[in-house]
Nucleic acid binder design. Structure first.
Lengths: 229, 229
DNA sequence: ATCTCAATTATTGTTGACAATATATAGCCG
DNA sequence: CGGCTATATATTGTCAACAATAATTGAGAT
């Protein structure tokens, strides 16, 4: 149940792998807009391959929920409705609450130290605002993912950080960074870390769930924007 | 984010769909054993198709975690280690806790009635033991899945009942039905249902999590059996 | 006899052509 | 002029052959 093989030496990369990475980047970076039709011949030409590996990549994107496909009708870039986005946060709340609870029992001293340093970095980043928000977001997810790793549950980690990672990235750009949020989020992170240090799984879960629900609430308050579903 | 299209009239079924269903059945029913190598030419011949749709089906099975594949080395039927099986229950605990919590807020009166009747059926089934255990298990999952449906969160439902359904079925056969478990499990179900009726999300989550943790504990107490990972 | 290495075999990755289905266009009828 | 049907086009589904990689077998040396 390995997420990816970062350390296997002869990690032979297949064509479908490369297309998967490129297509994912194209979607998350907005090069392909939500709802856009994904025509196989076009994409195959674009990536310089045949349709075989491309279809393979599309299937994997489908399982990561970045693409929705209907038989004989083709694939489209995902376009979450307001409700679906809120549902994503409800899923995160469940998964990340559990990772926090388990991490409190299993995290190592070294990992705790790394988390501490990470949050210090974030604090500095917020201080001198010019630091592009992009990095802050990336770092924010880092915090969440390291806790998932520290949960010692590879299945939870994969479900969260592999299957739903890019989808979260895609729909995060627009919402986070509301005015007070960055600093409040940092404070919430700090409290989660304290609970982890205290080995208090119950509290860590509670705080993590509140943290994610807070993010959800800011979205729930948003105007539903133009909804393509 | 539809799981499957049960009611679309012209639901054109592709070849890969059929293979996916057949292969899934073969794995879950033990026709293909855990860890067994899945050779594409063999399987293609077996299902009377070419390798194209077969590879497609294999990719989807991979995303449902029933198959593990490594590039250039082929695919095998999943074989969960003792730890991985426990991890699966930790995932369920998180997901189903959340479905119970949300269902308490959103379930309809009609759905509550159906759940009640379902549990009565289970009670009768346990009473006259000759009822094959198979049906009991199926029914047990039914209870959990109806709650997932009633949570009103399609993403949670899919993650639980589509992505991990067959994997749970596969590794359930061997463990549940320990001596007192069926009756205890039924009692636990009843208490969850009571919480749902009371619209007490907090309690429903707590009870559901305990229920799943109880199942996990019986497994944790098992001998790790012969572990192929 | 055992280990190493090379050649062979088998299996997966990739490609382009063909078939089946869905979408778009144009003509017809009301 | 609007809606519907039939044709035409484009796109997805399927197939069989080819290329590249991994697994296996056998020979040779120590």
């Amino acid at each position: 149940m390995a997420a990816s093989r970062p350390n296997s030496p002869a990690s032979t990369t297949t064509l479908a792998d490369r297309i998967l990475a490129d297509l994912t980047a194209a979607i998350v970076e907005g090069d392909l807009s939500p709802g856009e039709k994904l025509r196989e011949p076009d994409l195959a030409r674009r990536f310089g391959t045949s349709r075989g590996p491309l279809r393979d990549a599309l299937r994997r994107l489908e399982s990561r929920r970045l693409v929705v496909a209907t038989p004989n009708a083709g694939a489209r870039v995902v376009s979450l409705s307001h409700e679906q986005l809120l549902a994503l946060y409800e899923l995160r709340e469940a998964l990340e609450g559990q990772t926090a609870r388990l991490a409190a029992e299993r995290i190592s001293a070294a990992e705790l130290g790394e988390l501490e340093r990470l949050l210090d970095t974030h604090a500095a980043e917020i201080e001198r605002r010019h630091g592009r928000e992009y990095f802050r977001q990336q770092g924010d997810l880092d915090f969440h993912f390291r806790i998932a790793k520290a949960s010692g549950n590879a299945l939870l980690y994969d479900t969260l950080c592999v299957d739903h990672y890019q989808l979260m990235r895609l729909y995060r750009t627009k919402f986070s960074n509301r005015f007070g949020r960055p600093n409040r989020a940092l404070a919430e992170h700090r409290r989660v870390l304290e609970a982890l240090k205290d080995r208090d799984g119950e509290l860590a879960e509670l705080l993590m769930r509140r943290h994610i629900r807070a993010a959800r609430d800011t979205i729930a308050a948003e105007p539903p924007s133009t909804d393509t579903t």
